[in-house]
Amino acid sequence: MISLHSIAGGKRAAVLLLALLIAALLLLPESRQEPLLALGRHMAAAVSVPLRAMEWVNQGLDGFWGRYVALQHVREENFTLRQEIARLRQETVRMRETAVASTRLRDLLELRERLPYPTVSAQVVGRDPSNWYRSLVINRGLQDGLAVDMGVVTPAGIIGRIVKAYDRFAIVLLLIDPNNAVTGLVQRTRDEGIVEGTEKGLARIKYLPLLSTVKVGDQVVTSGLAGGFPRGLPVGTITKIERREAELFLSAEIAPDTDFTKLEEVLVVTSPRESTSLPPMPFPLQPPAKRDAGDAR
């Protein structure tokens, strides 16, 4: 019969033996641990399968926590951030608009300072109510000193003349309307003519002398002889010469310097003849080209 004491003693002996074995293994030189390591690798490989599974579960739990449980305030935060983005976008657009407007207004102010004539600045508030005329509505009128036939300009060049004036509004007939006519001259050859609009939305200078040496690319400016414009304001560039047989005069098509679809602020020249001297070339016009022999007329 085995006594309880002997069993307990055997257990102690086994534990002691195991401890000694472990200590011996630890004390073994590293080179002698190869079999153990080989055994350990197989065991680690076996353990890694459930380890990976547990890791997957753990990640899933993390994701669930992160995506659903811990995000209870994200909706509100998202809403707030979206509002913030919308506000910032609006602010960006407003700032951009302000920057563009300030550039436009600075150009207009520079033009106003350069022009030796009294001018009134005005804002374009509307377009012609019909498709038959090319005109603008500006927010200045008789109360601001405007009157019919006054010239309207922008930093790019002339745009038209006032045809109707009311107390607070005025109607500007654009240069490209066929009913408009302005006296102009070809800057290089000094040939004078009448500039009027065409059906195609361009302008044409008529009544140029038949022997004129005008050519494509010449700049046309106002002559200042009649109408509400001073001398020397840019009108446009000649793009096509029209020579017809049995006609006493030449005419030429002009591409206006102003983009008539993007007008926002303009200057109205209230008195083009106030100054007796010629304007000191207020615009960066083309340098005078070498005159042809035919210009010596």
């Binding site: 012609d128 019909s130 038959w132 005329y133 005109s135 045809v163 109707k164 009311y166 509004f169 109607i171």
Partner: peptide, 13 residues
């Protein structure tokens, strides 16, 4: 009203 704000004559419309 349309003629008042148009570049044309005051009697067309």
């Amino acid at each position: 009203a349309q003629d008042l704000f148009s570049g044309g004559a005051l009697w067309g419309n």
